[in-house]
Design a protein around this nucleic acid. Structure first.
Lengths: 135, 135
DNA sequence: GCACCTATTGACATTTTGCACATATAGTGA
DNA sequence: TCACTATATGTGCAAAATGTCAATAGGTGC
């Protein structure tokens, strides 16, 4: 699991490297919200379902993505002051959020296929090199 | 194909969104170099094999990634002044570059599996919602 | 010489991200 | 009432990653 550059420094702390966390967070949050309207703090705890280890995603990142998605119109929010504790901002997926998620799914399918192809190319190349040793 | 935020501005121009281009560039370049030692300008043209549309990757990005990979020891280079035209820096994959690529492959397998799981969850959720309309 | 292709690199602007900190409500125990 | 903890949402900033543009330089055909 490539995670940085040797011991050199300037490494990244996050998990797997080839993804922009906040980008992949978008479809994850949308999928969770589609299941059930919810607020940031709660969503943060549900992210484990998608391979995010606890603590790997900073709270501020989640809140930031949620606000950005609201700006873009993918979700909408309302303050919930009913329950105990501080008020919470409860998010719901909008119609265009549904469309956006569907587009994400399409995109992820493409990404997956490209990864598959890449892995296959690697495997074929390795097999070819191995055969060179058996003349 | 989610590419930004509506018409709002601040969009990205590149292709699919959930990848850091220069990070995914690493395994692509390593795979190409493993096939045959080569130089930046040539590698740039070979990137089409991995779904990069021509022009989607700036030359300077490729050269930067190559230099960073050399700093990290994944590749090594030598000036080739033999052929016609300006001298070119020819890169070769090192032993630790091979290891690094293998780790990338592992990581990509994980990523692919997580994407698969995500898509399945989405599909199941959609099916469930559809059934609610057939009581 | 001049336009053009190959080839590499430098500099700067923008975007993304992680971290530290600020704020507020409510409950618990001393 | 005071400190402390858990819940809940946010701000500001610095560093890292990425994108874009321009500069340099050799060689070829006209």
């Amino acid at each position: 699991m490539p995670r940085g550059r040797g011991g050199g420094g300037r490494g990244f702390r996050g998990g797997a490297c080839p993804r922009r966390i906040s980008r992949f967070l978008e479809p994850c949050l949308l999928l969770l919200l589609r299941g059930d309207a919810s607020h940031g703090y709660n969503l943060l705890e549900s992210l484990g379902q998608f391979g995010f280890t606890p603590g790997s995603v900073d709270t501020s990142v989640v809140y930031r993505v949620l606000r950005e998605m609201e700006e873009s119109g993918w979700v909408s929010s309302q303050w919930d002051t009913a329950g105990s504790g501080p008020p919470r901002r409860v998010y719901t997926v909008t119609a265009s959020g549904e469309t956006y998620l569907a587009a994400w799914i399409n995109d992820l399918r493409c990404t997956r296929d490209e990864i598959d192809q890449f892995i296959e190319t690697y495997a074929r190349q390795s097999a070819g090199q191995a055969n060179q040793n058996i003349p």
